[in-house]
């Protein structure tokens, strides 16, 4: 069971209040019409899915309902840090 710190509520809450929304930091192409099929497909579907440090988007679904980012180890499940949307992670994979 994760014990997750919501940076908006500034409180630790249990995993069940949260929902994982996949990989973080995926910018929408600025000009989608100019994308090739490959570029658009990769934006839509291709993911990093690392075994190790991963930056993810989570939503405090049963709480403040706001999104935030989390850096987590996908092997040990250790949560390294949480940070708000628009901020950059301080813990990154080598």
């Amino acid at each position: 069971m994760f014990h997750i710190y919501c940076p908006h509520c500034a409180e630790y809450r249990e995993e069940e209040e949260f929902h994982a929304a996949g990989q973080a930091h995926i910018p929408r192409p600025l000009d989608p019409d100019a994308c090739s099929d490959k570029e658009w497909g990769e934006y839509m579907f291709f993911r990093k899915n690392p075994r190790g440090i991963h930056h993810e988007l989570w939503v405090h679904a049963a709480g403040c309902r706001k999104f935030f980012n989390m850096t987590r180890d996908t092997q040990t499940y250790e949560i390294k840090e949480v940070y708000k949307i628009g901020e950059q992670p301080s813990v990154v994979a080598e």
Binding site: G22, Q23, G41, E42, F45, R47, K48, N49, P50, R51
Partner: peptide, 18 residues
Amino acid sequence: GNSTVIAKMAGFELPLES
């Protein structure tokens, strides 16, 4: 589940999440 790890060795990404 480790397909992404092998794909990374080959230098491409897959549309997968484990």
